[in-house]
């Protein structure tokens, strides 16, 4: 009986030490966050006839990320944008954006991003996130610099964290090729994400 107890005690002490080698460390340190759609913005900017910048947005973004300030490499990001939620304050234009001229939303209803690596960014506290962006069925690797904008508890007891960043894509690379001169090839995408812990 004494031998059994001492064996159990030894196991109990050894397990935390062995945990890193069992691959449990990452999930224990990188906290999971769910994207809060109500406080997340995905904006896009292009030019109209080479004259002025024009902004639109996607209203539905879902996804999650894991973030560990101490071990940034363990962080992960994945999100989905509902293409049908594109919003430019003009229904006719939104319908056109959903058509095969642009996003072909019926065949490709989601724009997705999944990180493949996360590193510390150039600025303090920022992240350099590399991953696969899929637009209209075309996958391309991109790197986004995300700055942490804030972190703290909300009035309801939850914990929140925010990041913001922007990147530029050539929409022709993704088969979004209608009116390349009139509407610009380069599209700036601004992402401001708020995540709720847990």
């Amino acid at each position: 009986m004494r031998l059994f107890r001492s064996t159990l005690t030894a196991l109990a002490l050894a397990l935390p030490l062995a945990a890193p080698t069992l691959g449990l460390a990452t999930s224990a340190h990188a906290a999971p966050y769910t994207i809060d759609n109500s406080h997340t913005s995905v904006l896009f900017k292009t030019t109209h006839l080479g004259v002025s910048p024009f902004w639109g947005r996607f209203n539905n973004v879902t996804g999650s990320f894991q973030y560990d300030a101490a071990k940034v490499d363990a962080s992960k990001v994945q999100f989905e944008i509902d293409v049908n939620s594109v919003f430019t304050a003009d229904k006719k234009r939104d319908d056109h954006l959903k058509s095969p001229d642009f996003f072909s939303a019926k065949q490709f209803p989601k724009i997705t991003f999944e990180s493949t690596s996360v590193k510390a960014g150039k600025a303090a506290g920022s992240l350099s996130v590399t991953g696969t962006l899929t637009v209209r069925g075309t996958k391309k690797t991109i790197t986004v610099e995300l700055a942490k904008t804030g972190e703290g508890k909300d009035p309801w007891g939850g914990e929140r964290i925010g990041f913001e960043g922007s990147f530029v894509i050539n929409r022709l690379d993704y088969g979004v090729s209608y009116m390349p001169e009139g509407l610009g090839k380069d599209v700036t995408i601004v992402v401001a994400v708020e995540g709720i812990k847990g």
Binding site: S38, D82, S85
Partner: peptide, 13 residues
């Protein structure tokens, strides 16, 4: 109904 169609989020708190 949905943000995607009306532009407004019905679930906004």
């Amino acid at each position: 109904t949905t943000p995607g169609t009306s532009g407004y989020d019905p679930g906004y708190g």
